[in-house]
Design a protein around this nucleic acid. Structure first.
Lengths: 217, 217
DNA sequence: GTGAAAACCATACCGCCGGTACAGTAGATT
DNA sequence: AATCTACTGTACCGGCGGTATGGTTTTCAC
């Protein structure tokens, strides 16, 4: 029982690394089981086919990410009562988190999967869509809370700004890899953070940095 | 000779569509040749192995993208002498271009390939890296030209802003697919455009829209 | 400690695919 | 007429996803 969960977890860990490096289609079960030290029968005991592996990978990734966002948003709210400061702190914490990864961000499973959608059935894609919507909703809520206190610049849809954050993260991961510089992602999140600051503090930036701000520079 | 180039092009077109939908590893040569109406021997006459197909796809994609950027930057410069207006027009043209695609953007080959790097040899990856650097350089140059005329906000590295545009495009493509809404990409480019406007026109937005601006709203 | 369920292993097999090899050919070019 | 281009046809190899089936060990509940 516990041992079964451990093996399952090990399979998922190995598979995720491979998927993020070669893609799902090029990730062979044989290779995964070789690294996990089990047999093919052992693999198919845990996952009835490759699609179920995909679904499990997706679920695992989404849950892990939810935990991270929960944590970082929670700490942001703890460190300031002001919604803007709170969000800026959250962004800084996230940037630090990304920057502290030794070999850069391992990659976003959602991104890989959207570029291989034809390989999965609807259930897998639905998990991804739901997760993305929920994360965007989180950012959107945070921005709307800020806008209720501070007047936002006109002509900017906050929903689009929320989605842009997801774009910057996924794009930042790709650019980090493509340019071979792991720090790009961290810098991108901080650049986005600066834009958020600009968005809500157009005229007098000094006013926007009350002494309650802790992590905000 | 001409016929050979035509067949080669047809193979590349079919392969690219498949790669963007299923990934490179899951794109089978058999499937490509079936759709192209040729035999396996015919395929290997044009490409000595799958890696050479990857390289050809990459080169083709990079060249096509270069042409698009050449065109859209050129038109931007034609429509205004002011570097800021010129860049804003370019961004708007690009957004329109993306929005006019009937089924949304087909996908960025660079993005797929960076998520499948282990499948390709160095030459393919080098093409991608060089291309990304050159595009970022383009945006960076444009931003620096603007900064020479308009004072940019402090605390923002223009290099990061340039890279962010690439992030927004690649991220926007992923989000468009993931959310099932092709218009997300267009909206993201326009949102980034608004940020650029904010970056260089902090105090008085009205001044930044002289009558010379044509496409700028 | 025993019995049952969980967590595997061993073996054999199918069909598809990437890739190689090699021989042949229709049509355009020179 | 000879040559080159752009293929077709056939045959083969090994690896992989996936199925099937039967056996074995480990773990846990009672």
């Amino acid at each position: 029982m516990r041992k079964g969960a451990e093996t399952r977890e090990r399979i998922l860990e190995i598979a995720e690394t491979s998927v993020l490096a070669k893609g799902f289609g090029a990730t062979s079960i044989e290779e995964v089981i070789a690294e996990a030290g089990i047999t093919k029968s052992g693999f198919f005991y845990h996952f009835k086919d490759k699609n179920e592996l995909a679904r499990a990978l997706m679920l695992r990734y989404v849950e892990e990410n939810d935990r991270i966002f929960d944590d970082v948003f929670h700490r942001g709210r703890q460190l300031s009562d002001d919604p803007l400061q709170s969000f800026l702190i959250t962004l800084k914490l996230l940037a630090e988190l990304m920057g502290d990864l030794p070999n850069g961000h391992p990659g976003c499973l959602i991104a890989t999967f959207t570029y291989q959608e034809r390989l999965f059935d609807r259930s897998v894609r639905d998990i991804a869509t739901t997760a993305v919507r929920s994360w965007n909703g989180r950012f959107s809520d945070a921005l709307n809370e800020i806008a209720a206190v501070y007047p936002a610049r006109k002509g900017m849809d906050l929903e689009d700004v929320a989605i842009m954050f997801s774009c910057v993260i996924d794009g930042g991961i790709i650019m980090s890899r493509g340019l071979g510089d792991p720090r790009v992602l961290e810098r991108q999140i901080l650049a986005f953070r600066s834009f958020v600051k600009m968005l809500f503090a157009p005229a007098a930036p000094e006013i926007m940095l009350p002494p309650t701000a802790i992590a905000a520079e």
